[in-house]
Structures are given as C-alpha cells and as structure tokens.
Design a protein around this nucleic acid. Sequence first.
DNA 1: GCGGATGCGGCCGGATCCCGTCCGCGATTG
DNA 2: CAATCGCGGACGGGATCCGGCCGCATCCGC
Lengths: 241, 241
Amino acid sequence: MTDFAPAGGDPAGRTLRLLELLAARPSWPAAELAARLEVSTRTVRRDVARLQSLGYAVESRPGPGGHYALRPGHRMPPLVFQDDEVVALVAALRMAEGILAGDAAHRALAKLSQVLPRRLRAVLDTAAAGSENAWGDRESVDPSTLAVLLRAAERDLVLRFGYRDRHGTFSRRRVEAVRCVYARGRWYVLAHDLDAGDWRVFRLDRVREPEAGEPGSGDRGRPAEDLAAWLATDFGRRPGG
Amino acid sequence: MTDFAPAGGDPAGRTLRLLELLAARPSWPAAELAARLEVSTRTVRRDVARLQSLGYAVESRPGPGGHYALRPGHRMPPLVFQDDEVVALVAALRMAEGILAGDAAHRALAKLSQVLPRRLRAVLDTAAAGSENAWGDRESVDPSTLAVLLRAAERDLVLRFGYRDRHGTFSRRRVEAVRCVYARGRWYVLAHDLDAGDWRVFRLDRVREPEAGEPGSGDRGRPAEDLAAWLATDFGRRPGG
DNA sequence: GCGGATGCGGCCGGATCCCGTCCGCGATTG
DNA sequence: CAATCGCGGACGGGATCCGGCCGCATCCGC
C-alpha cells in the first residue's frame, strides 16, 4: 500500500498540482479548481494562500468572471540570453562559489536553466561542466548576511552586528553602512562606526548576525570625495578598526 | 524581509523545496536533504514518495554512496527565486565584473531582472545598488574566449591559441584542454601541451584567439590521481610553461 | 562473502492541521 | 441595485503528519 493516497487527500501534493494547474492555463475560476482537485472552494482558497506565502504571485479577481491567475512574471518566458551572457553567468557563479556560503548561487543557476531554451541550456551545462573553483578554502560569507548588509548600504540604514577582528577579539558594532565592496578576493563593508565616530572597513566574513535598523543620518559625507577612486587605491588600509 | 526559509514546517512548501534541491544538484544523500529541510530522513523518504506519486522521476540508489537524483528532462512547476538566490546572483556578478571583459554579465542580470516579480526585482536592484567592485584593475578575460575554452575542456577538444607568457614572449600552442579553473582570483586552463608533451597551466587572460578543433585522445590520464585535491594544493605552481 | 552504509517501507502514537460548513463582507459587473 | 464571485474568520470532527523504531534489500569495499 502506498502510504499516500493517490495525491487526492494530501495537502502537499494537492498544492503542487494546484501550482501546475495555474501554470498551465492563464486563469481558473475557483469552482473549477475545486472540482479538479476534488476539494471545496474553501480549501482552494487556503491552498492559494499557501502558494502566495511561498512567494508565488497568484492573483485573483472577484466579481462575475472572477478567477485565479499566476502573475506572468512567474510563468517566465524563455529567457533569450546571448551565449556570452550565459557563459558570463556561469563564470560568475564559479568565481563566487569559493566565497558564498551554501549553494544559493547554484540553486539560482539551476532555476535559471529551467527557463532557458534548450540550446542555451546546453551552453550553460557545458560551461558548468568544464569549469571548477579551486579557491574554495576561503572564509565564506552567508548570502543572507550579504543581503542584510547590501540592503543597509543601499538605504543608509543603521546596522548592528557582532564582529571578530583580526586578533580574534569580539565586539558589537553600531554603524551606518555606506557600501559593500568586493576587493582583493573578499567582501568588505564600508561604514561609519557610530561609536568610534569614524570610518571603518569591516570584512564580511567576520560579521555575525547583522541586523538592519532605522535609517541613519545619511548625510555625513564620505571618506573621500571620489569614492570610486578611494576604493580602488586606498581601500582596505584600515581593515576592521 | 528575511524571507529565506519559506514556511519551514509546512509539508507543501517543504516538498517544493525538495524538488528545487533535487533540481539544483545531480544527487543528494538522504541525510543531507533531511538536514536542509530540517526534518528526519523518514520524512524525506515520505516526501520523495510523494513526488514520485505525482509523476516526478526521482531515482534512488541504496548502499554506500547512495543518493536521490531527479532524472532530467522532466517538466517542472515554475520555481520561484528565493531572496538569497537573487542576492547570490548579484554578488556573483560583482565578483566577476573585475575580470570578465565587456558587460555580458550585466546584460544577463538586466534581462533577468525584467522577468522577475516586483519584489524580487527590488531585492536585485537593492543588492546591485549597495555593492561595488573595487578589484577592477585586473587583467580581464573575454567571455567568448572563456566560452571556447570551457567547451573545449568539457569535450576534451584539441585547442589552438596564441599565448603571451610572463616574460612577454609570444607563442602558439596546441593543447588538449582538461579543465578551466578559477583560483586565486584568476582563471586558468589546465591542459596537456601537445608540443611539449607535458601538462601545463595557462592563464586565461594571456590566451589570444583560441580555436577549438577535433576531439583529442582524451585518454591520457590526469596530472594527478585526485584532481580536486591537486587543484586545491599544488595548483598554479607552473603557471604558463 | 561478510560487514557496514544506505535506502525502503511498515507500524505506532501523540500532536498537529486540515477540511467542510456556515457566515458576513467587499469588489466587480451589468 | 442585485447577482456573482472571491475573502477570510470560526468551529469541530477527523484525517494527516512526523519521529522513532523495526526488519529487509541493495550495494560497496575489504
């Protein structure tokens, strides 16, 4: 006996089937979905809510002719990349995988390949199979950490985190982030240390549990007039205050 | 907005994530899947059975080295990007842009951003706006060069190219490419030099006008038994013959 | 060929949740 | 304005889920 009813009364399987249905047709009235899935419309509503909470953009329209539909962005049209764009993406992934913790980049590329036309998918697979990262023993950065810092940098948010400096000393920091910078094979965050009252550069692989807070003053100038030039030349001279 | 682990304890979401994991990597041992999904291996088995009963070709192998694998070529439900995946893509691009010539990676990301749902596009744009590459003065590699070498490496093709070694001497090479490797912030190609009759490592930024030709003998062994370990330790000791 | 690693699936029990029903609300259409 | 359709709260009985445990099958290395 197959432990699981033929996907009939099983919420997980049914939700997956609902997703497939939504992807297969532009729109569905609730009653029809309910009939297909052999549940009540109330349950369809619940399943739709579940999909939405998982990140799927399921839209609905009330009134006569009402329906559910998967927003077009999710039935991704086949992405027409140029060959060099695909190769660049694979190369970028390979360069990143020594530093980014976890396999988020891999998963992203796998999903991307799902929506590529066959020829481009072949290009992607070939490129991935012919390459390797041999720089993998570096301190790695968690993408979710990176996400918090990138967001804080873009919005000039006040940021709190724990930091272990090059001597192994642990401290808690309050800073206003300005920019996340990749340089010399590492990620750094350039920030104004609110406690030290001065500019600091922190290595991202030493940042622990960052939390973005309220917007900072934002208007405290920059460590140099020409930020780009400063980054290219002086960057990293004072790693981690 | 730290929506990284979508609905952890929910069977429907978990099954979907399982499908994504299976699609993202050739194979997984059950224990690893269980750890990722934060459930017991028993539950992983149940979820796999569910996917199979829904028609997804999940294969398994018992015994040492056992694993689960998704047979390719199967239609997949639309997969939605997670925040950390989008961030990883942006980060990878930033890391790559100091080395990849041209703007292929940027164009790819721009195209991608156009088909992303609004929220994810915001994540992508924020991440892109908050980051920078300050390692841009490196010798760069043309993605189309990379494409040729990656293809040659994957298929064991004979490769011809011009090469300018570290002394500035220019020569023409005939090699059988084995692997393109990113290490220490640079791209290299590991190859068997047909003229020198020995293994060589070439820096990709010194390769000019590569041309892939007929398949090579393919069967000439490897520079070391354990290629991965060799790459991680000895790699690059003989840069560019 | 033997032992260990790994996957398979049955079984159980308790905690969880799921689902159908009922209902009033809001949005849209004509 | 009235009908249609989606929305979501409340509720209670019952199905499901999950972890743990078992013995079994399969595959690999020794």
